[in-house]
Computed example of a mutant assay.
Amino acid sequence: MTLLTTGEVYKITGLTERSIRYYSNLNLLKANKNDNGQLVLFKSDFEKIVQILAAKITGYKLKDLIDRQPSLSCIKNDMTQMITDLENILFHLDLTDSEENLMKNIKLLQNYNTRYLRKK
């Protein structure tokens, strides 16, 4: 198996060593040290990185992922729901012709904020 240093991972993905170290400290990633003391990851660890980053997008907090690591399938379902909700918001944002529609927009945006941005 190919080992990649955090510098190599950064060049490929843009994920910083600090992030890798943090994920590793939380036991979300199993970074190892090579003979030179550098943190290294297997290419197979990239799947876990995808899962972590996707979970963050859908509103999971990293510390919550320690106890409950949702499957990629579950995360994809969450993303699909987010897209549906955002499309609904985009549609309604054009409807600002009355005070009633403005209030509906505020409610939609507040619900989205509560559901995703303050989630879990």
Rank of each mutant, 00 (worst) to 15 (best):
N25W: 00
S19R: 10
L28G: 02
L4G: 10
K30A: 01
Y23Q: 11
F46S: 07
R21C: 02
G59E: 08
M1H: 05
N25Q: 07
N36W: 08
R18M: 05
S44W: 10
T13Q: 01
Y23D: 08
Y23A: 03
L86I: 14
E87T: 14
Y22K: 04
C74Q: 09
E47D: 14
M103D: 13
F91P: 02
T84H: 13
L4H: 11
K56D: 02
T2E: 02
Y112T: 08
S44R: 13
N111W: 06
L39E: 13
L109I: 15
I83P: 13
F46I: 14
P70Y: 01
I57Q: 00
E17I: 10
L95Q: 12
N27G: 00
V9F: 05
L95A: 11
N34L: 13
D97A: 13
R68M: 05
T80Q: 11
A54Q: 08
I83F: 09
K33F: 07
A55C: 05
Q51A: 08
F46Y: 13
K120T: 06
S19G: 07
F42Y: 15
I66D: 03
Y23V: 05
L53I: 01
N25G: 04
T58N: 00
K11A: 01
K120L: 04
Q38L: 10
T6I: 00
N105G: 11
N111M: 09
K104S: 11
L109E: 01
A31S: 05
E17K: 06
N34T: 15
N88T: 03
Q81E: 14
L95S: 10
I12R: 14
P70H: 04
M82Q: 15
I49F: 02
I12V: 09
D97I: 12
Y60I: 06
N27W: 00
N88R: 10
T114H: 12
N77A: 10
I89T: 04
C74R: 00
N101F: 04
N27Q: 05
K30P: 08
I106M: 00
L15Q: 10
L29N: 03
N36K: 12
L65Y: 06
N32Y: 07
N32K: 14
S19P: 04
T6Q: 00
V9C: 07
G14K: 10
R18K: 12
